[in-house]
Computed example of a mutant assay.
Amino acid sequence: MVLIPSSGGAFEIVVNHQLLYSKLSTGVFPSSSEIIKRMEA
């Protein structure tokens, strides 16, 4: 896992070069359960 600092409210989760979640696209910070569900899928 790599944490890349950013600014401007960017929060994205990428696993194996695949974007699982983007706060920039949704405008909402995800819940822990939502992140886990997407990682399991």
Rank of each mutant, 00 (worst) to 15 (best):
G27I: 05
Y21V: 00
S25Y: 05
S31P: 02
H17G: 03
V28F: 03
T26A: 05
S31K: 05
S32N: 11
H17Y: 07
G8A: 12
F11G: 05
P5F: 06
H17N: 08
V28M: 02
V14S: 02
L20K: 05
S7P: 04
V15W: 13
V14L: 07
T26C: 01
A10E: 09
L19M: 06
S31T: 11
E12S: 13
L24Y: 06
S32D: 11
F29P: 02
A10T: 11
L19I: 11
P5H: 09
N16K: 15
F29I: 04
V15C: 15
Y21M: 00
F11P: 05
S7C: 11
S33E: 13
S32G: 09
K23R: 15
E12A: 12
E12H: 09
N16D: 15
S6L: 13
F29W: 09
L24W: 08
T26Q: 05
S32Y: 12
G9L: 12
L20R: 07
P30Q: 04
T26G: 02
S7Y: 12
G9V: 09
I4D: 08
T26E: 08
V15L: 15
L19F: 00
N16H: 14
G9I: 11
F11Y: 12
P30N: 09
F29H: 03
G27R: 03
H17C: 04
V15D: 15
S25V: 00
S7E: 15
L20D: 07
A10N: 10
T26Y: 03
S33D: 14
S31A: 00
K23L: 00
H17Q: 11
P30R: 06
F29R: 11
Q18P: 02
S25G: 00
P5R: 09
S31C: 05
Y21I: 01
K23M: 08
S25A: 08
Q18F: 09
Q18N: 10
G27S: 04
V28D: 02
